[in-house]
Design a protein around this nucleic acid. Structure first.
Length: 367
DNA sequence: CACGTGCGGGC
DNA sequence: CCCTGTCGCACGTG
């Protein structure tokens, strides 16, 4: 009873994207563990793993893992550790996204390495034609960039995304509407978009281990446990229902920059230079986006890893750098009066963003 | 509405 | 074992 609408949606997920790019550029990395890292700069190897190739993953290296753990795991191996080069990855991502966009009735970039394509019209609702098209997309990306990706085809975004994750790297998984329920039923609830570690734990404690369990569970109880929005969403998702459209994303709703401090401190003299840099970076971004901000937030992560935020909404939207810095300083004062802990990381966020009038820029979001 | 927190996705 | 960076959404509270 999944989709009366007869849609066909494709999800494209670039395989171990950052590490694959590095591999492609250095053929001598082939067969070795390649680990792309975000170095925080507080000690030699402080920081976290961003992406690892499949060789490293076989040893247990994972995204988000501390770099020192990964080094320990791979110390007997001839492994390569590299810093992230986001400018390079973004350039390659943009190139692939521009290519992908031409294959859909509509297109939605989800992140630097993921996108949805609505192809219903393009394939006339036919899953055989969709599978062929998905293959052509994979070929085109490979020819153009030398990179592989994993692709999922399904009757909606939810199913297409789960399908793309089913076989990777270099996978192609097609789930026609008639097979949605059998496809979902045996999968663990954690495979559902929106179910992470915390939510999965709650579900498993309720005896909901598979998506089938969730689909059969009374929706009232899900609403009671997870709230109206999420409860209804989980119920529908578990039954393979998702009517959300594939559509170009608009301008960002918030922008933030966060940094790790060289050492834990609560001294304004030590924090200020960092805040200035973060504000400057944000203002540059606001300018290229053609946006103005009205809400300013200071984000703090203290030595105990607790995250907090302080924010203030201005009377009028602005692009002014000094206003931003003054506001951030004032919020820092508020925070320091309330807490005695040293800070480990600090960040600045702007939100309530509005487009500046008379901007050509708007056109770049209209698809 | 403004403010603050929690969570997820997944590099 | 130690801990990156960025964004969106939901929701509780005042």
């Amino acid at each position: 009873m999944a989709q009366p609408s007869g849609r066909v949606v494709i999800h494209v997920d670039f395989d171990y994207f950052f590490a694959q790019i590095e591999e492609r550029e250095q053929p001598e990395y082939k067969g070795k563990s390649v680990v792309v890292c975000v170095y925080s700069g507080r000690t030699e190897d402080s920081g976290a793993v961003s992406t690892a190739n499949y060789v490293a993953r076989r040893f247990g290296v994972r995204s988000g893992m501390p770099i020192v753990w990964a080094k320990r795991i791979l110390k007997e191996e001839d492994a390569v550790f590299l810093p992230v080069n986001l400018v390079k990855y973004r350039e390659i991502s943009d190139e692939i996204m521009d290519l992908l966009r031409t294959y859909g009735d509509s297109f939605e970039q989800v992140s630097i390495d993921e996108a949805f394509l609505e192809v219903t019209k393009r394939v006339g609702g036919d899953y055989g034609a969709a599978e062929k098209l998905a293959g052509e997309i994979k070929d085109a990306i490979l020819r153009r960039t030398g990179l592989t990706c994993s692709v999922g085809v399904g009757p909606n975004k939810l199913i297409a995304k789960i399908a793309a994750n089913q076989v990777k790297p270099d996978g192609l998984t097609v789930v026609p509407s008639e097979t949605v329920n059998e496809f979902l039923r045996l999968l663990p609830v954690g495979r559902l978009y929106g179910v992470g570690r915390k939510t999965e734990k709650i579900m498993v404690e309720k005896g909901l281990k598979t998506i089938g369990d969730l689909a059969d569970h009374p929706v009232d109880d899900l609403v009671h446990t997870f709230g109206k929005t999420l409860g209804l969403y989980f119920h529908e998702a578990a039954n393979g229902i998702d009517e959300s459209e594939v559509q170009e994303r608009g301008p960002p709703k918030s922008l933030s920059r966060i940094a790790t401090l060289k050492k834990d401190t609560r001294e304004p003299e030590a924090l200020l230079p960092v805040l200035i840099e973060l504000c400057e970076a944000l203002i540059r971004r606001i300018e290229v986006e053609g946006l103005a901000y009205r809400t300013v937030s200071l984000v703090t992560i203290s030595e105990d890893m607790a995250m907090r935020s302080k924010s203030l909404t201005l009377e009028d939207a602005t692009t002014d750098k000094d206003v931003l810095l003054r506001t951030v300083k004032s919020l820092l004062g508020d925070y320091l009066r309330e807490s005695t802990l040293n800070l480990r990381r600090i960040g600045v966020r702007v939100s309530s963003l509005s487009p500046l009038a008379g901007q050509r820029r708007l056109s770049s979001y209209m698809g």
